[in-house]
Design a protein around this nucleic acid. Structure first.
Lengths: 187, 187
DNA sequence: CATTAAACTAAGCGTTTGCTTAGAAATAAT
DNA sequence: ATTATTTCTAAGCAAACGCTTAGTTTAATG
């Protein structure tokens, strides 16, 4: 009996994600989402409940996208070299024209206060923990570090990739490549 | 003839800075500034023209505050060790209770789009360039790196301190100390 | 003490925010 | 074709935003 939706939910979320990625959460208004997603506010709220719902779906879509490079890291068994590849893959992943959009997760962590939106914050923290676990797992592969070193270097690498997520929005490609090289030198 | 201001402009800017530092630029409303600064909106606009004016003054005050640790770096001549001290000093500087507020400059760069507010963006980029210059200058002191290495390591260190500015808002003290240790190991 | 210029209070300006809703259009089933 | 159910359009809601302004209070001057 009913009328069919005239839009594909995954397609419109893909567009919403791009907007959140470029602009951040708060700076993305529902009016902007309307335009970018190509559907009316009513449809947005009918499909995703509210703005937070659109963002959480966007975040989900983002995770699936970035899984292309995290799974490559997960399936690698070349230790530190695999992590270095992940750094370079991330740069490529976040690229848009000459500069980068950073990481949607990191961008949002930076924007929201811990008290703001616990649902979103939880999503973000667990994402970071997951990346750290992958780092630990690859560091173990090299069989040349004790457990303490592994934990320390995992913290270090997480800090560097966070930095890269910020740097990539401001600095040029050569500087970023330099940074990656030095990051893994003598590790 | 006129009546005297019932507030000290530096004092109220100090309070405004704290608010911007904790909350970011957009998330800090003029109503919140009113409360925190303890003066009416009229007085805010009379003294600082607009919200951007309050922020720029806050940024100025921030720079003066952080000069306490940047000048220590500037006056140091112990090469890489001086930079490492700066990293630790920064952690102390941005501390508030158990966690850190990051760096006001970095926080704002992360928040604003390049097209948003060119005046503020310019202030922020030149701040980062200044820090990088100090890194370069200290790296030269050690007399063990060629010019290419110095440029590369400066990019690297800038990335690490940016990362630290983000990490410090999320991770615990021990992780941050680990990160600093590994950052300077074998450099 | 009256004058005068600045600092104050408080109300409200126009916009934009996230979100809702009344009514029209569309479509699968009867 | 009629009915039922959902999607759509478009208008509008209250609240919050940055900012302004009319009117009162204050205090150094003549």
């Amino acid at each position: 009996m009913p009328r069919k939706k005239q839009y594909n939910e995954e397609e419109v979320i893909k567009k919403a994600m791009g907007l959140f990625w470029r602009n951040g959460y708060e700076a993305t208004s529902v009016r902007m989402l309307e335009k970018e997603m190509g559907i009316n506010q009513f449809s947005i709220y009918a499909s995703f409940k509210n703005k937070e719902g659109v963002f959480l779906e966007s975040l989900n879509y983002y995770k699936i996208q970035i899984q292309k490079i995290t799974s490559k890291l997960k399936n690698s068994n070349n230790g530190i070299e695999g992590i270095k590849n992940y750094f370079n893959d991330f740069l490529e992943f976040s690229k848009e024209g000459n500069l980068c959009k950073g990481c949607l997760v990191t961008n949002t962590v930076n924007e929201l206060k811990n008290t703001d939106n616990p649902v979103i914050i939880n999503e973000l923290v667990s994402f970071a923990e997951n990346i750290r676990t992958l780092f630990v797992s690859n560091l173990k592969q090299d069989d040349k570090r004790d457990e303490i070193q592994i934990e320390q270097q995992a913290d270090y690498l997480l800090n560097c990739i966070l930095g890269l997520s910020v740097s990539s929005k401001v600095f040029n490609y050569k500087q970023l490549k330099n940074t990656i090289e030095v990051t893994f030198k003598n590790l």
